[in-house]
Amino acid sequence: MSSMKENLSIVELQNKCIDLKKNAISMIYKAQSGHPGGSLSVAEFVTACYWHAMDVDPQNPRWADRDRFVLSKGHVCPAQYAALAMKGYFPMEVLDTLRKEGSPLQGHPSMTKCPGIDISTGSLGQGLACAAGMALAAKLDNKSYNVFCAVGDGECNEGEIWEACGTAYKYKLDNLVVFVDWNNLQLDGTCEEIMPPISLAKKFEAFGFEVYEINGNDMAEVVDALDKALASKNGLPKCIVGKTVKGKGVSFMENQCGWHGVAPNDEQYRQAMEELDAQYVK
């Protein structure tokens, strides 16, 4: 099967990302439940993966040679659900069923319920090990697919993240790209308050990763880092530490711990849509 990759300009990707953010916030608003802050901070990475870096076929979600996406910070699934619907994995109307009984769009991603989800996540710290397993399978089978994994900064409190790094280094998983969504806010407070991260970039480097430190909400920087990571076939796993803003794009949600897991009301939703609409690049 030939490549299904899309070739969008940075401006087109930026606008796609605004669509994605609006869909994510709309889902959470309609469900009156979900996690807007992290969905917005990781949105540029999700957009750049699905519309730039990843080779996937929405008509054939289980295509054996596809690139994989693991949302280790599973609670921000509205961002991934929006991407999947926009790519055509399922109809856009399905987004309105988020967190409703019988919906494929569970509160945290389920691979058996939702097409396009490569592994079920939700319990923090576990996705990177699964992503490493997928990347390892590619190596064992001499396949060329890549695995992209989004982890949260808070999630790096979990020991299993660092166990997985060991596997990624040992088995030379240069087909694994980890994105750390460093928005500096956890559920209970800032990263420094809850568990000082010291330096996530230095930690991943010490664990044998090739590390790229970027502004994770700058589409051009995200695309550039992904391109470099995919081009570097030196046996080292890749880590993009993206400095991001939790709630990025909606002024009253930005850098607010309180918007971790709360849905907007009518007035807040209207304002969020207005603000995001104003950000389209002409």
Partner: peptide
């Protein structure tokens, strides 16, 4: 040896790696 992996004393990761392998058709 081509079918043998050892992820060290890291059981949580061991289970997760196996899950990822299984999604790609392996029987770990």
């Amino acid at each position: 040896p081509e079918q043998y992996l050892n992820v060290g004393i890291a059981e949580q990761n061991c289970a997760g790696v196996a899950a990822g392998l299984a999604t790609c058709g392996k029987i770990p």
